[in-house]
Computed example of a mutant assay.
Amino acid sequence: MKTIMLFFSLTLLISFQSYSQLEFEGVIKSNFKTIQLDDGEIKYYNFNNKSQEIKLYNLDNSLWKTIHLSLDKNHFFEEILMVSQKTINPDENFEIVYTCLKYGIASIEENPESYENKIEFTLNIINESGQKILSVPNSQSFNLASSNGKNKLLIYKNIGRSFLDDNETLVYALPNKK
């Protein structure tokens, strides 16, 4: 009986060992960020400031797409918020929702000699060929919503400098998914 229990325990231990092994696939450098497409696929990307290009890679390290961003003067790329194929526009092109920022120095009105650092964000939507679809200054976040079968893009716009100011939510109709 001890032999049967020992044999059974050994078999069970070996079977757990064979299923629990992790397999190392590679390393993604810290200057790359990951993004999940609207179909659930995961990509990672890096922005080259000099060429103003975003390179998107598959998880197997193969290049998926290279997209040129034309940033406005004195604007810096911040991050990709979404890569979509059918959610924003039903054509075959991918759309990229990203933010950029601009640093500025504003004087305080009561004391013109003191200055305050100011960061201005802009939310942009372009297609994969670099064509600008939408640009919203003073915005850094958005949400996708669906109500009564209608899809909406909600963009949160910061009008003032404090939480007490009158901010806006811009509402855009999106095409229904096919």
Rank of each mutant, 00 (worst) to 15 (best):
Met1Val: 11
Met1Phe: 12
Thr3Tyr: 13
Ile4Asn: 11
Ile4Gly: 10
Met5Trp: 15
Thr11Lys: 13
Thr11Tyr: 07
Leu12Asn: 14
Ser15Gly: 07
Ser18Glu: 05
Val27Ile: 10
Val27Tyr: 12
Ile28Arg: 01
Ile28Tyr: 03
Ser30Phe: 08
Lys33Glu: 04
Thr34Leu: 08
Gln36Tyr: 07
Gln36Arg: 08
Gln36Glu: 10
Leu37Lys: 02
Asp39Gln: 06
Gly40Cys: 04
Lys43Phe: 15
Tyr44His: 04
Lys50Tyr: 14
Ser51Arg: 07
Gln52Asp: 07
Glu53Gln: 12
Ile54Cys: 00
Lys55Trp: 09
Leu59Glu: 03
Asp60Ile: 08
Asn61Glu: 14
Ser62Thr: 15
Leu63Val: 04
Trp64Leu: 12
Ile67Val: 06
Leu69Glu: 03
Leu69Met: 08
Lys73Arg: 12
Asn74Ile: 07
Glu78Ile: 03
Glu78Val: 05
Leu81His: 07
Val83Glu: 00
Gln85Thr: 07
Asn89Phe: 07
Asn93Gly: 08
Phe94His: 05
Phe94Asn: 04
Cys100Gly: 09
Leu101Glu: 09
Lys102Asn: 10
Tyr103Phe: 11
Gly104Ser: 12
Gly104Gln: 08
Gly104Thr: 05
Ser107Glu: 12
Ser107Trp: 07
Glu109His: 12
Glu109Met: 14
Pro112Gly: 03
Pro112Arg: 02
Ile119Arg: 09
Ile119Cys: 05
Glu120Tyr: 10
Phe121Leu: 06
Phe121Lys: 02
Asn124Pro: 02
Asn124Ser: 11
Ile125Ser: 03
Ile125Tyr: 01
Glu128Trp: 02
Ser129Met: 11
Ser129Cys: 11
Val136His: 00
Gln140Cys: 10
Phe142Leu: 01
Asn143His: 06
Leu144Gly: 01
Ala145Cys: 02
Ala145Leu: 02
Ala145Phe: 03
Ser147Leu: 06
Gly149Tyr: 01
Lys150Ser: 05
Lys150Gln: 13
Leu153Tyr: 05
Tyr156Glu: 02
Lys157Gln: 01
Lys157Arg: 06
Asn158Gly: 01
Arg161Tyr: 11
Arg161Met: 10
Leu164Glu: 10
Asp166His: 06
Asn167Cys: 03
Glu168Phe: 00
Glu168Trp: 01
Thr169Gln: 01
Leu170Met: 03
Ala173His: 09
Lys177Leu: 15
